[in-house]
Amino acid sequence: MSELNVAVIIKLEPDFSEGSVSYNPDGTLNRAETKNTLGPHSTIAAHAAFYAKVMYNARISIGTMGPPIAESALQMAQRLSDAEELHLYSDRIFAGADTLATAEVLKTGIEKMQGKMDIVFSGHRASDGETGQTGPQTAWKLGFTFLGNVIDYKIDIQNRTITAKRLVRLQGFSDVVEEIEAPLPVFISIDPSYKPLFNTISQRLAFGKFQKEAKIRAENYKQYLKVFNVQQLGVDPKYVGLPGSPTIVYKVERIPRGKATRQAEVLDGSNPEHIRKAVSKMKEALAAMVIK
């Protein structure tokens, strides 16, 4: 029995890199033609969980809500985190969920994972629209203490506490690194700048060992995979998917743009008239800055 149970929630997302992504003529993402991959922030969350594996020999579980193909994201995340349990919450009813309804599914799923979770990790946000609500909403539903923008953490296994560093970036203020302490369980939304640090030889060796184990496990990921539909998960269909979503997407439209490309107007720096013109354009640019 591991002394620390860690869950990660992840997401299969469109791969926005050039060569993988396709757009429709109207500028919307062509989802059918675009390859999918484990989201970049999910990747960081998986790394954060793997840190717990290497440092504290944690037992890792991963959960995701999505269509059947989302199991590929689970496999990719297992490859990164050496997880021993993969959960896919997949049902037509879940489709179209907003973050509140998604959080309901994830919360129920996490409670069905083996062992009582001590830490749940989620990515900072998804790259295809969701802007980081799912993590904190799931945390609140679970009743876990939520810690956002975490860039580093240590666990005191004996006392069941965590100390973590959070990066606080606020408009007009210098960045602040806040060090906090909290009792387990906690829910951590990991900051994009997180990078696990292993600074002894033995930690690095353990890292290598578990990485290899992860690779083998991921090759046989199906034996770790459990798929849940709405009944198996035991959620109220009224609180998930579209019925459970307060928000809807009402319309999608093109953002009107001033100019399509930059066509430089060449001015002569030695001509006072030109300088005047340049400065008045600069002034205009600065005046047009606010949407009134």
């Binding site: 050039e18 060569g19 396709s22 757009y23 003529p25 743009r257």
Partner: peptide, 21 residues
């Protein structure tokens, strides 16, 4: 074509990259 809207240029570039890949 530089006269196309920027997002259209981008879309075409991405489409070509993907096909060539």
């Amino acid at each position: 074509d530089k006269n196309l809207p920027q997002e259209e240029q981008l879309r075409i570039r991405f489409a070509i990259t993907k096909l060539i890949k």
